[in-house]
Design a protein around this nucleic acid. Structure first.
Length: 993
RNA sequence: GGGCGCGUGGCGGAAUCGGCAGACGCAGCGGACUCAAAAUCCGCCGCCGAAAGGCAUGAGGGUUCGAGUCCCUCCGCGCCCACCA
């Protein structure tokens, strides 16, 4: 041991005893967190009910609902990237409390889901046990951050008392139908009444003219009703993921045909599953985006996902088969004259009827499948009959996953059905194909193909040697770009012309489009379609109904049983909740053989639970329960409503409570649109959660259970925290904390092997997480909060840099030192008034910071507070302390951002009441207007002088002063002054010639 | 392939309505204090230049008295969607 060093005091002993550092911060923070919990300072009262007990004055304030997207309680706890949005909403909620609002701010847990179930599968421990332990850990972590939540209202979607109401909402969907005429959901009983009263006939494909209700059998009546419900069973192609042992919603499948979670391959299977009729709301889900204050990119993503297209439906009669007709959807009905063939999806129901027994004379070999190298089992020269071709091609396309389709780079394949259809505009007989580039799930599952004006049709026509007829004249430039003479016929074109132009080649005895612009031609042909009864304008959506069944254990059971006819029956409300039964094995049946595997839900193992005898009104009878569970999205569709009234056991939310929190008024008393006032979360929920939740909310609105058409008035997407991540030479991530080295010498892992730096979203998968505890140990929670708010705009991704944290820590240290003597611990606040200069800075700061807080610009708010504090630090020594009015305002302004240190200073300044509800300071307008302004003078755009002039000076006098300035005159020199631009109190620009 | 967004010092970022580019912080440099170091405090800190001055917001062009901000072309990065008829 070197003797010299031991003779000197250690670092810690040298520091003043009352300097703000990690030790003092940790002590202050723990103390105030206890006190806040004890006093319930974050409790927001309800107008009525159990939570209406205290703080009656608060409920008279305007309400403000600040909501976070609630987390999944993961077992690994939080890292510093998680709470960015939570700190942001907390700062905002605290700010708004101080400006006079009754602020609702709650945290809950989206606790159903795969990790707990997978852990249960591995350990045999009930997922509820792990889930509750994880929730307890997260609660502790949120508390340590000083987040001001009303803990009385916290819920987890796995609470039986919560999912009882999730089941209840499912019953609302089950017991409702969508009235297309009124454009809204109504109770299913109303539909039955209309049928019974004869106001409505039962129309289906077999009975296009309708049947009376009484002519149906009891089972037929039930089938009709069931088919109309918003929650219905449907046998349909679903996304079966053997790797996860469950089916998935379209939204949960990635574009390359794999599961979003786990990245397992996904296959199409026909299964009977619950679906929710979200498509009925497609139009309102698009239209009502105009009502809400969301980022435009998110609205755009929702619009794209819903995928509204305007166009026309056109009926093509099959040649020689007047009984058979195929309906197509097109967005370009103006190109109808150019339709030279048709394509049906392989799964289209009319394919069998269209498939002829033998190839028509002269059918090219390629139409019979010859040359389809990617299709297995094609005889050379093609299949012998259309039947064989259709069967062979269908077998091929049903076995291909979406992934395969992707790999094949969109090579166009298909076979001829043997049938021809009649183009209604010109009477041409055009061949009908099946091809997998036409999707059953969109439009009508059939298209008219216009190869001259559609890229995909052009590719198909090229491969199958089909006619290309141009019916929209491209501009001359288009021909020039393609090295064609203007007006060259379409069969010479190297690609389709998909733009707009003037119609050509489009006339028959009844209609002539030639010369019309594309929009005019669309209008004209649409009118003709309607008059000639061959079609009509139509709107189509990409959105599909929401697949709502999952073959999992850890989810909400459906409140549904099946009777002896195998038909679903809703359990009465009195039988809710349907609790999850215990099982001895939580594993879903996971099979990796994609050919034969079928989903098998774990609840099938709970024999005693699955088969029950119930009295549902007709005496005791045997039923079997629905064995699927709901997807994880279910709870998140409505949790924000349960926060309002979490203890209510007679309703999912009391209507008066719902009205208080959801139907706001603006602070000036005018009615606000309502809903959650601010909803903050990650952009990854742009379509899934946010679309599903809007859908449920609209159903609840239609049925009279909530009072606003939209749930979330203002949405804000916080950014992600990025951090350096390191990959080894094999491409695997290594723990970032173990990496040493730098950019110039290179990075190495713990064993000295070279690794390579990249940047990515902080988290477990990139092994670059930083735990909040590390930061608390060095600086405290207030510093962490402040750093996260100061490092950049809330909605931007930003790199985590531990080195930078010291900056905001020093700021807190200096605030503390300006108000508290570091040696004695005594308050350094004096009664003297601040100088005029300091007072002006203070009020400018108040004004700017208030504005920034309102706009969620916390980074610039922090910068302004630092400026004020730095200015204060320069004079505090001369004054012998901080002027009390400055200290008071500074602590109030600091408190939303760094609540613990602010609360401690507030108490030391002699306040008994918490700073949480103290009013936010307001700026004195008299101190915001300067009496002198500095005006830069430019000559030809370059600043040559700065004049200090009285504010509000008339432009002529400013101009005179500018022209009189020596430096300005020197810059002008001999040149002639052409023009002088004076922007009052801002700038002068002298233009010379 | 389509759509949307973003490019500002060594780094994170600021400039809210077209009006002094680089607030605030980190890093760096110099100084005070100290036997010394840490901590703390003070000062400097876009680039070129000794200075005067010139040049600078991805590149190029345009509009304007004036452009980081508006328009056009290109380059780079990010996100979303992707055979959607």
């Amino acid at each position: 041991m070197p003797p010299e060093t031991t003779n000197h005091p250690t670092t810690a002993d040298d520091r003043p005893p009352f300097r703000y550092g990690a030790g003092l911060a940790n002590e202050i923070e723990a103390r105030w967190q206890d006190r806040w919990a004890l006093d319930g300072v974050y409790h927001a009262p309800n107008p009525v009910g159990e939570l209406a007990n205290d703080s009656a004055d608060l409920v008279d304030r305007p309400k403000l609902y600040v909501l976070d997207m609630f987390p999944y309680p993961s077992g690994t706890g939080l890292h510093v990237g998680h709470p960015l949005g939570y700190i942001g909403t907390d700062v905002f909620a605290r700010f708004k409390r101080m400006t006079g609002f009754n602020v609702l701010h709650v945290m809950g847990y989206d606790a159903f889901g795969l990790p707990a179930e997978q852990f249960a599968v591995q350990t045999g421990q009930h997922p509820r046990v792990t889930t509750e332990a994880n929730i307890a850990t997260m609660r502790r972590q949120f508390r340590a951050m000083g987040l001001g939540h009303d803990d009385r209202r916290s819920v987890a979607t796995t609470d039986v008392a919560f999912y009882r109401w999730t089941q209840w909402i499912f019953l609302q969907l089950f017991n409702a139908w969508f009235d297309e005429e009124l454009g809204r959901a109504r109770p299913i009983d109303a539909l039955v009444d209309e049928f019974e009263a004869g106001q409505r006939l039962v129309v289906d494909d077999d009975h296009p003219d309708g049947r009376t209700w009484s002519s149906l059998s009891r089972l037929e009546q039930r089938a009709v009703i069931d088919a109309n419900r918003l929650a219905y069973l449907d046998e349909a192609a679903v996304n079966w993921c053997p790797g996860l042992g469950t089916v998935l919603a379209n939204e949960e499948v990635t574009p390359d045909g794999r599961s979003e979670r786990g990245n397992f391959p996904v296959f199409k299977r026909n299964l009977e599953q619950w679906k929710l009729r979200i498509t009925a709301y497609a139009e309102r889900l698009v239209d009502d985006l105009d009502l809400i204050d969301w980022p435009e990119p998110i609205k755009l993503m929702q619009r794209n996902w819903i995928g509204r297209s305007e166009g026309a439906r056109v009926t093509f009669v099959v040649a020689g088969r007047p009984d058979l007709a195929v309906e197509v959807f097109t967005t370009r009905p103006d190109t109808l004259f150019g339709a030279t063939y048709m394509v049906l999806a392989p799964e289209h129901p009319l394919v069998d009827a269209l498939t002829t027994s033998s190839w028509p004379h002269g059918t090219p070999a390629s139409w019979k499948g010859a040359g389809l190298t990617s299709v297995a089992g094609v005889p050379s020269g093609g299949w012998a009959t259309p039947r064989a071709a259709v069967d062979g091609y269908r077998a091929h396309s049903s076995q291909r996953s979406d992934l395969d389709r992707q790999i094949e780079a969109r090579e166009k394949t298909g076979v001829f059905t043997g049938s021809f259809a009649v183009n209604p505009t010109n009477g041409d007989a055009i061949p009908v194909f099946i091809a997998d580039y036409v999707l059953m799930g969109y439009g009508t599952g059939a298209i008219m193909a216009v190869p001259a004006h559609d890229t995909r049709d052009f590719e198909f026509a090229s491969a199958f040697d089909l006619d290309v007829v141009g019916v929209v004249a491209p501009p001359d430039e288009w021909f020039a770009e393609h090295d064609l003479v203007s007006g060259a016929p379409a069969h010479l074109w190297p690609e389709a012309f998909t733009g707009v132009g003037s119609a050509t080649n489009s006339a028959n005895g009844e209609i002539e489009l030639d010369g019309l612009s594309t929009p005019e031609a669309i209008a004209a042909i649409s009118a003709w379609l309607r008059e000639s009864a061959t079609g009509d304008i139509a709107v189509t959506y990409k959105l599909r109904d929401w697949l709502f069944s999952r073959q999992r254990y850890w989810g909400e059971p459906f409140p549904i049983v099946y009777d002896q006819d195998g038909l679903p029956v809703a359990l009465p409300e009195s039988m809710l909740p349907v609790e999850l039964p215990d099982v001895d094995d939580y594993a879903p049946t996971v099979v990796d053989d994609d050919d034969q595997s079928m989903p098998a839900p774990p609840l099938a193992r709970a024999d005693h639970w699955a088969s029950v005898t119930l009295d549902l009104g007709d005496g005791p009878a045997p039923y079997r329960r629905e064995l699927n569970t709901m997807p994880q999205w279910a709870g998140s569709c409505w949790y924000y409503l349960r926060y309002l009234d979490p203890t209510n056991d007679v309703a999912f939310v009391d209507p008066q409570v719902e009205a208080y929190w959801m139907q706001g008024t603006h602070s000036d008393g005018t009615p606000a649109f309502g809903g959650v006032d601010l909803y903050v979360g990650g952009v990854e929920h742009a379509v899934l959660h946010l679309l599903y939740a809007r859908f449920w909310h609209k159903v609840l609105f239609d049925l009279g259970h909530v009072s606003t058409p939209e749930p979330f008035q203002r949405l804000y997407n916080q950014g992600y925290i990025l951090a350096p991540a390191y990959k080894d030479t094999r491409g695997f991530y290594v723990e970032a904390v173990s990496v040493t080295g730098d950019e110039t010498s290179g990075f190495v892992d713990a064993d000295g092997n070279p690794v390579f730096r990249e940047s990515g979203k902080m988290g477990k998968s990139l092994k670059n997480a930083v735990s909040p505890e590390e930061i608390y140990d060095t600086y405290g929670a207030d510093t962490l909060r402040l750093y996260e708010m100061a490092m950049g705009p809330l909605d931007a991704d930003r790199p985590w840099n531990t080195r930078d944290i010291i900056g905001v820590h020093r700021f807190l240290q200096r605030v503390w030192r300006n108000l508290v003597d570091e040696v004695t611990g005594e308050l350094r606040v004096v009664d003297d008034a601040p100088s005029d200069e300091l007072a002006r800075l203070l009020h400018h700061t108040i004004d700017g910071v208030s504005d920034d807080m309102e706009g969620l610009r916390f980074n610039t708010a922090v910068a302004k507070l630092i400026e004020l504090n730095n200015a204060l630090g320069r004079v505090v020594g001369d004054l012998g302390g901080t002027p009390s009015v400055v200290a008071d305002a500074l602590v109030r302004m600091l408190s939303p951002l760094a609540p613990h240190i602010a609360e401690e200073l507030w108490a030391r300044m002699g306040h008994d009441e918490s700073v949480v509800w103290a009013p936010y300071p307001s700026a004195d307008p008299a101190l915001l207007v300067a009496d002198t302004v500095e005006i830069p003078v430019q000559v030809d755009g370059k600043v040559r002088a700065r004049l200090s002039l009285p504010a509000g000076l008339p432009p002529e006098e400013v101009e005179a002063a500018a022209l009189a300035d020596e430096a300005v005159r020197a810059a002008i020199g001999d040149a002639e002054v052409a023009k002088v631009v004076v922007v009052p109190d801002r700038i002068v620009n002298i233009v010379i010639r």
